[in-house]
């Protein structure tokens, strides 16, 4: 499935909102990072609802959604604060996948299975998210608890992201961030400036003024974004429509 600036912006919006809820990012610091966790200028008439069964909307003269390629993003327009955790202070082997207690019997707990239903899935994520929010006020110590899924000694956004990625199959270990390498990570990461939001005026989602494209009169070339690279290619005008070709259904 394609990653676009829009999907990256959605992910960034969620991450920023969560950080703001936790106080890690305030509205002021969010502005410094140019983060858009909110919709300050919501305009109902500009919304495009994708119909329940219809095809995706598009208007021909607007540009296609730009593919998102973190390697080419140079602007640090967004710093989602869920970076690598602090240094480990206990000894354990990430390859094991769960932490052996310093003393006591080995744990049979499947790390990430917070509701003990035998599987690690979205319901555990829901549980973790809830605990995460409550942790700001309940005074509990979560260091190396079940909720500290990446065992970095605290309950933070890194645990949410780690569990999220683990559930999605994007990482095989919940200790991902202990061996974090941005080059391996296709997702937008803070150090590499995930795009904040796509430019509303240039995406296919905005109901901008469009001009009917009549293939019979068009003389301009079109520019398409190559899905596999970040360069643009200039193409010739589209082939004149031919209607009444041989039917495929005779």
């Amino acid at each position: 499935m394609k990653k676009t600036k829009r999907t990256a912006a959605t992910a960034a919006m969620f991450a920023t909102a969560l950080n703001m809820a936790l106080g890690s990012v305030t509205p002021d610091t969010a502005q410094l990072f140019n983060a858009k966790a909110d919709e300050p200028d919501y305009e109902p008439s500009a919304e495009i609802q994708e119909d329940v069964y219809g095809p995706p909307e598009y208007f021909s003269t607007t540009t296609a959604e730009e593919a998102y390629d973190p390697a080419t993003e140079t602007e640090t327009t967004m710093a989602v604060v869920y970076g690598p955790p602090s240094m480990m202070t206990t000894t354990y082997d990430p390859a094991i996948g769960f932490e052996e207690p310093l003393y006591g019997p080995p744990s049979f707990f499947s790390r990430g299975d917070l509701n003990s239903d035998g599987v690690t899935d979205v319901f555990d994520l829901i549980r973790l998210r809830k605990e995460f929010v409550e942790s700001k006020t309940n005074g509990k110590n979560y260091a190396y608890s079940d909720y500290d899924v990446n065992s970095d000694g605290r309950l933070s956004i890194a645990d949410l992201v780690a569990l999220n990625r683990f559930i999605l199959g994007k990482s095989s270990s919940l200790f991902y961030y202990n061996n974090y390498d941005p080059d391996d990570d296709p997702m937008p990461q803070p150090e590499y400036g995930a795009p904040l939001y796509f430019e509303e005026t240039t995406t296919s989602e905005t109901a901008t003024e469009t001009t009917a494209v009549s293939p019979q009169t068009e003389t301009t070339t079109e520019i398409f974004y190559d899905r596999n690279t970040t360069t643009t290619t200039v193409t010739e005008p589209p082939v004149q429509p031919v209607y009444g070709p041989p039917s495929a259904f005779d």
């Binding site: 499935m1 990256a8 992910a11 609802q49 994708e50 119909d51 069964y53 997702m187």
Partner: peptide, 15 residues
């Protein structure tokens, strides 16, 4: 929602 948090182009419909 999990998919969208992860940046995947998944969406619910209009209903």
């Amino acid at each position: 929602r999990t998919m969208r948090i992860a940046g995947e182009p998944v969406t619910y419909g209009c209903s």
